[in-house]
């Protein structure tokens, strides 16, 4: 039986770009039926130390989680769950978290109710992209921050390199949150993710992972964390969706 599964795995691995198959693997992995090649591999083979994202599925896909230090690039349109993706990770930290140039006001109330200690947050609103980068570098370098979240547009390679260096000095992680990216050139980051909305949460595409192979898209199920922000089943979906016009009619006043 084990042998057969390994065979399947190998077969699948070869055709891993086939999405249907990818779902099968996901399924198998869920059931813990698949032995994964890297799981028992020596640590030295990994490109970087990891820290859990708080999502077991994601950790598996990322072979352990986010890099402990370095630069992560997250491409996503705003408002689909990109920040929620990082919340469990942020919750586990002890040093500061610098939030630089967020697209709207960070809601302490929301963070509080998701178990995040808002006392560790530093919200920085720089006056220019240069200042934003400067602040990010300072925060990383200082060693006072576990993580830096930076909303930014296009970046030059040398800028990323500086950040990478600073991250190493201060042993911190910087997440670049970017949307509507025009540039296609690959940046020297540890990890690059592309996020798309999905009924169950997010579709995650790992576009780059240092020391790893490119992987197919997979679905990150967030329904147990935020049941209200997912459409769990088709049946309930139709029942729950109400248009504004209907809501107006239903006015309870």
């Amino acid at each position: 039986m084990l042998a057969l599964l390994i065979l399947i795995y190998n077969t699948v691995y070869v055709y891993s770009k086939v999405c249907v198959m990818a779902n099968l693997i996901d399924f198998l992995q869920h059931q813990n039926l698949v032995w994964q090649g890297t799981e028992n591999a020596p640590v030295s083979r990994q490109a970087y130390e990891t820290v859990s994202t708080g999502f077991d599925d994601l950790d598996k896909q990322l072979r352990g989680g986010l890099p402990k230090q370095g630069v992560v690039d997250i491409q996503s349109q705003a408002g689909i769950g990109e920040l929620r993706l990082l919340l469990p990770y942020l919750r586990g930290q002890t040093r500061m978290c610098a939030v630089i140039h967020p697209p709207a006001q960070l809601n302490a109330h929301a963070l509080f109710h998701q178990g995040v200690d808002t006392g560790r947050f530093l919200v920085i609103t720089p006056n220019s992209p240069q200042e934003a980068l400067w602040a990010a570098e300072q925060c990383l370098k200082s060693g006072a921050c576990d993580s830096v979240l930076l909303w930014h547009g296009d970046l030059e390679i040398h800028q990323v390199k500086r950040l990478q260096l600073a991250a190493q000095t201060g042993q911190g992680l910087i997440c670049l949150l970017r949307s509507d990216i025009k540039q296609s050139a690959s940046l020297p980051v540890c990890l690059s993710l592309k996020l798309m909305p999905h009924d169950l949460g997010l579709t995650v595409q790992i576009t780059k992972r240092r020391g790893g192979w490119a992987k197919p898209d997979f679905i990150l199920d967030m329904s147990s964390n935020w049941p209200e922000l997912t459409s769990q089943s088709k049946a309930s979906k139709s029942a729950q969706v109400v248009t504004i016009a209907q809501a107006l009619q239903q006015a309870n006043r």
């Binding site: 370098k141 200082s142 060693g143 006072a144 042993q171």
Partner: peptide, 9 residues
């Protein structure tokens, strides 16, 4: 951890 305290930063 690094070179500075949070207050210093």
């Amino acid at each position: 951890c690094g070179t500075m305290t949070a207050a210093g930063l």
